[in-house]
Design a protein around this nucleic acid. Structure first.
Length: 452
RNA sequence: GCGCGGAUGCCCGAGUGGUCCAAGGGAGCGGCCUGCAAAGCCGUGACUCGCGGGUUCGAAUCCCGCUCCGCGCUCCA
């Protein structure tokens, strides 16, 4: 059974399953108003790894992740660009999935869209008003945080402390009863997209969609709710407030991952140093990004730099080279190593420990091959494949890669030259192969040509 | 101000009170292998884990204080 840090209790505790053998997880998905950045990349990879691992251990994972396709930021962009907000949402979403595919991230089992749940949200807000936990003000409906038991569970701050807040907060809606009250429904201004409601046309407020969609699809008391550290407050605190005000338990366990930093600063839009996920996956092997994320702990801040990506690519080369060397060897994974892998992963998702085990297999296997021991090599290779597969890291042997006939011809000429001990010509031919973007390796089984 | 989290070798980065005189990767250097390479293997790096106290038979790990850094405090993953 895996244990994970729970933001609510501030402890690493076993992830309890409401239904034995099944895991229900809700991961806050994107608001589609722009291209996905590196932070989104870390988010999806962390939960993709978690999901794949849980599935690998034999659990039936239901992974719900929303697409928020109506939001102030989308509207803002629509107005600025004179476009329809649904058009922006649709295009951004398709770019999102393209990035996910490049990163080899599995699709969630369910992908609810906010705009498909507006009726449900209106019903929830109505019920909250009936219960006296929400009220109508001049520009919309607000949730009265003082009526919610345990508000601050995730943020670990009292309402008084929140009120003191150091930021230059904008007190949206002067009619709020308490400064921490937040919008559930925003009445539409002219020209804004809107839906009908008992309080007038408008749109949903603070992530009411996540509350309605998670409860609808997963039911109350679902196992895990997760997202970035920045979602702890107010996003998740406010989701929880809405659900709890309705008498729900809501999520049983809260998981949050750390940020990606660029040169020591949290990557943020305001700093203008955001790097686009599509750009990153163009510039580097997307698997290197997954490996980089696996090598650090999900709650630690993490740097993504040209140096760290290049470093990860070099490490990946080592894995691929081993895969190439052990191709065709059939063996069974080492049960002890897989136990160690499980132990690491169950310890608050110690993926770095898993990577450690993976590389140890590689070294052991390479040594075995050098010693001519194919049995041990086959075993380590099978173990490495098993571990890599469990965390979604694809290992490539390069088999099936097309090498152009002219390059193969150069390699053959080089072999002939080598046979004649004409080293100058052989080296010159290798230069040509290299210039064409290929590497030739002289192995006991003869020369092997592969993409550099 | 309040809250959360960091500080480990040249770089990245694990670390579960004793098995830690601290993983793994990258880079460097030396060696083996090779016609030379590539790939691979072996060797080599922290007398120490931000600083100062404390608890303990024993601390990178627990507690207290301090320094520095990051993040949040109403629409960021």
């Amino acid at each position: 059974m895996i244990s994970l840090y729970d933001t609510a209790t501030q402890q690493v505790v076993p992830l309890a399953q409401r239904d034995p053998g099944k895991v229900s997880m809700y991961v806050c998905g994107p608001t589609v108003y722009g291209p996905p950045h590196l932070g989104h990349g870390r988010s999806v990879l962390v939960y993709d790894v978690l999901r794949r691992y849980l599935t690998w251990t034999g659990l039936d994972v239901r992974h719900v992740s929303n697409v928020t396709d109506i939001d102030d930021k989308i509207i803002e962009r629509a107005i600025n660009e004179g476009r329809d907000s649904s058009d922006i949402a649709r295009k951004c979403e398709s770019i999102w999935w393209e990035a996910m595919d490049r990163l080899d991230v599995q699709r969630p089992t369910e992908i609810p869209h906010a705009t498909d749940y507006v009726e449900g949200m209106v019903a929830l807000i109505s019920a909250l008003i009936e219960r006296g936990s929400a009220y109508l003000a001049g520009d919309g409906v607000y949730l009265a945080v003082e009526t919610v038991a345990g508000y601050g569970l995730l943020n670990h701050q009292s309402l008084d402390d929140l009120r003191e807040g150091g930021g230059d907060r904008e007190l949206v809606g002067a009619e709020k009863r308490h400064p921490a009250d937040f919008a559930l429904w925003k009445l539409a201004k002219p020209g804004e997209p809107s839906w009908p409601s008992p309080w007038g046309d408008g749109r949903p407020g603070w992530h009411t969609e996540c509350v309605v969609m998670s409860l609808d699809l997963l039911g109350d008391g679902f196992d895990l709710h997760s997202g970035g550290l920045d979602l702890v407050f107010p996003h998740h605190e406010n989701e929880r407030a809405q659900a709890v005000a309705m008498g729900n338990r809501f999520a049983n366990h809260w998981m949050h991952h750390g940020f990606i930093e660029l040169e020591g600063e949290k990557m943020s839009k305001s700093l203008g140093n955001v790097r686009n996920l599509l750009d990153l996956t163009e510039a580097y092997d997307p698997r290197a990004f997954r490996l980089l994320i696996l090598r650090s702990h999900y709650r630690s801040p993490m740097e993504v730099t040209d140096a760290s990506m290049t470093d990860a690519e070099a490490a990946l080369d080592r894995l691929d080279a081993f895969t190439r060397r052990t191709e065709g060897l059939e063996g069974k994974p080492d049960a002890d190593v897989l136990d160690a892998f499980r132990a690491a992963m169950d310890r608050d998702l110690d993926t770095a420990g898993a990577v450690d085990l993976l590389f140890r297999q590689v070294r052991e296997g390479n040594s075995a091959l050098d010693a001519g021991d194919e049995v041990v090599a086959a075993k380590t290779a099978a173990t490495a494949r098993e571990i890599a597969g469990a965390v979604g890291l694809e290992l490539r042997s390069g088999a099936g890669t097309e090498v152009p006939a002219e390059v193969l011809a150069l390699a053959e000429q080089r072999q002939t030259a080598r046979g004649a001990k004409d080293w100058a010509l052989a080296d010159q031919l290798r230069e040509q192969i290299s210039a064409a973007g290929y590497t030739v390796e002289d192995t006991p089984g003869g020369p092997v040509v592969r993409p550099a």
